[in-house]
């Protein structure tokens, strides 16, 4: 791959992650359905994961896995620290989504609606 191609890849991935965060934020701010808000949160999650992995990327780098005979190739590897961080973040994000969805089921059982305008017992 030549340099121009790599440049386009970097700009494309970076703008994709920023756009994903903005689209998710739009859903959280304007939508009224609770499930749509959780969908927006999971889109924000994906955008942040992509952003972190992109910031750890190294031009012409390889995955941070050693093989015999190449023990001293550490300067050609991408950053493993954001990858470990994102690995944790995906699992925790799933747990948070599951708890949020169970809260939604519980709310629906009491109010028989998912629109946040119509759930009024929280206001006093």
């Amino acid at each position: 791959m030549d340099d121009n191609l790599l440049k386009i890849l970097e700009i494309g991935v970076l703008s994709t992650s920023v756009l994903m965060i903005l689209i998710g934020l739009y859903a959280v701010l304007t939508k009224r359905s609770l499930i749509k808000i959780v969908i927006g949160l999971s889109i924000i999650d994906g955008g942040i994961h992509l952003l972190l992995i992109t910031l750890g990327y190294l031009k012409r780098g390889t995955a941070p896995i050693f093989s015999p005979g190449y023990e001293h190739a550490a300067d050609k590897m991408v950053d493993p620290v954001p990858q470990a961080l994102v690995l944790t973040a995906i699992v925790i994000g799933f747990a948070v989504t599951a708890v949020a969805l169970s809260l939604i089921i519980r709310l629906y059982r009491h109010h028989h609606t998912l629109e946040i305008d119509e759930i009024k017992t929280l206001k006093w």
């Binding site: 994961h49 992995i53 992109t54 750890g56 990327y57 995955a63 991408v78 990858q83 994102v86 690995l87």
Partner: peptide
Amino acid sequence: YILQAPDV
């Protein structure tokens, strides 16, 4: 995978 993160 393209960004060299197979674990993720």
